[in-house]
């Protein structure tokens, strides 16, 4: 019996560690992937804003996508230069493959020139979305200030 009890304790601790790791990754602002040449956002029906656009990859069956869309939608607005476009993965599997999107929601932060500057995956909080925006401002102001972002 002692062996089984130890096995269960190890199992519970391992599961807890996995849970902490997974939770910490949700929505965290990560470095961008190199945007492949020849990505034509407009041709895929994704109109970019001048400054920054959150391109959110969603699925119909994804509950976390809806709360993420609400958060990102709340940061857009007239004159903010911030856009939010939601892309259904089922309709754009080609884009999903070329951009290396593995799960929903995945949010690419794309600058006015169509270059990815950051990405987030998992449910995104308001704080994390704002953090991504400051990173964009830092990148525009110059690479020397990036460390403070």
């Amino acid at each position: 019996m002692l062996g089984q009890v130890i096995a269960l304790v190890v199992l519970v601790l391992g599961t807890a560690a996995l849970g902490v790791w997974w939770s910490a990754r949700q929505g965290a602002v990560r470095a961008p992937r190199e945007t492949p040449a020849g990505i034509d956002w407009a041709a895929s029906g994704i109109a970019l804003e001048d400054r920054v656009t959150f391109v959110q990859f969603s699925a119909e069956v994804c509950a976390a996508c809806r709360s993420t869309a609400r958060v990102l939608g709340g940061l857009t607005g007239a004159g903010s230069g911030v856009g939010h476009r939601e892309v259904l993965v089922d309709d754009h599997l080609d884009l999903v493959r070329s951009l290396g999107v593995l799960r929903t929601p995945t949010v690419l932060v794309v600058d006015g020139g169509g270059r990815e500057v950051a990405r987030m995956s998992g449910v995104v909080s308001d704080t994390q979305a704002r953090q991504a925006l400051t990173r964009i401002s830092a990148a525009v102001a110059g690479p020397d200030r990036e460390g403070q972002a």
């Binding site: 599961t15 996995l18 849970g19 997974w22 939770s23 990859f57 699925a59 069956v61 994804c62 509950a63 976390a64 993965v89 089922d90 599997l93 999903v96 999107v101 593995l102 799960r103 929903t104």
Partner: peptide, 18 residues
């Protein structure tokens, strides 16, 4: 993980399987 933090394996694997 599903019970405590709401991790949904079906949601995580959906796009990979698509």
């Amino acid at each position: 993980l599903n019970a405590v933090i709401g991790l949904c394996l079906g949601c995580e694997l959906y796009l990979l399987m698509r």
